[in-house]
Amino acid sequence: MSTNVGFVLVSHSPLVATAVADLAAEMAPDVQIEAVGGAPGGGFGTDVNAVFAACERVESTCERVVLMADLGSARMAAEMAIELTELAEDGTPRRVIGPGPFLEGSVAGAAKAQTGAKLAAVVRTVASALEMWREHIKPENTVVLSPATGQSEGFQTQVTVVDDEGLHARPAALLAQLASEQPCTILINGVAADSMMDILLLGVKKGESVIISSPDPHGEEPVRIVAAALAAGLSM
């Protein structure tokens, strides 16, 4: 399987670039992810030529490239890789900067790309990772509502999470992918089940119960599919 969007991760440290790429690959095994870290002669820094070469490798299999950069010259190199490339045939950018934190944005964006999402949706997901760090988003201040409650349409069911990691890391990515494959909107505790970041913000642990629902009048079967997968263990 190949995806529409690939990633180039640019860091001052080769260890950091590789570690983040490895983590993202756990959530998105079919997404091409290139890690670029360190100066040309070794040590900390940025190798502009290596960034360009990584972009070209990703473009050999993907239509679009998201460049994630940690700071300083890494971001400058990523911006150069964007400025010095031609637009796609439809006039849109082939390469873009990922507008989110290096680690969280890379992981969330790659997980979204794994679903086959187009560039705009992947970039929105990268940006949504910023929400994890905003002061006003705290678990104790989050009110979770189920849209199916009190409605005549829709369907919901309760399921206990059995994955050892709860709904974190790979289980969250797998749940988001499964939900995105359904023909209707799927919610988990009232938030979008096809959004890895929304799932992570719920902070669900092993042994806790969640509500899987859909406001769609024909959503019973998709809800049961997602609930069954969750009850069986997503990463087992």
Rank of each mutant, 00 (worst) to 15 (best):
A193N: 07
S214C: 07
D198G: 03
L201G: 02
V161H: 06
I188Q: 02
A148E: 14
G203F: 15
N141Y: 15
R170T: 09
V191T: 15
T142D: 03
Q156N: 09
Q151C: 02
L175I: 09
I186S: 05
L200W: 12
T185W: 12
K205V: 02
T160V: 13
L174T: 08
V161M: 04
G150S: 09
D194Q: 13
K206A: 03
E165G: 01
V191E: 11
Q182H: 04
Q177A: 12
L174N: 02
A173T: 00
V191S: 02
L202I: 13
T185L: 11
K206M: 12
I211Y: 09
I211P: 01
T160R: 10
P215H: 14
D163E: 14
P215A: 10
E165M: 10
E181K: 10
D198P: 01
D198E: 15
L201A: 07
E181V: 02
G203I: 14
E208L: 03
G207W: 15
A169R: 13
C184W: 07
E140S: 05
L201V: 00
D163N: 08
A173F: 00
V144S: 09
R170A: 08
I188N: 02
K205A: 04
R170I: 11
T149M: 05
V210C: 05
V159M: 09
V159A: 06
D198R: 10
E153K: 07
A173Q: 01
V162T: 13
N189Y: 09
V204G: 02
M197Q: 15
I199H: 10
D164M: 07
V143W: 00
D164W: 05
L178I: 04
I199C: 07
S209D: 08
P215I: 03
A193Q: 03
S213R: 00
P171H: 11
Q151S: 12
A172K: 04
V204R: 02
A176C: 06
L202N: 04
V161F: 05
S180W: 12
A172L: 08
Q151H: 11
S152K: 13
T185K: 13
S195M: 11
S195A: 11
E140D: 10
P183G: 05
S152C: 01
G154N: 05
L145E: 13
Q158I: 09
N141V: 07
S209P: 01
E208V: 04
C184N: 13
V144D: 06
D216W: 12
V162K: 03
V143K: 05
I212N: 01
E181D: 11
T149K: 10
I212D: 04
T157F: 14
T149Y: 10
L167V: 09
G166C: 07
V162Y: 09
Q177E: 12
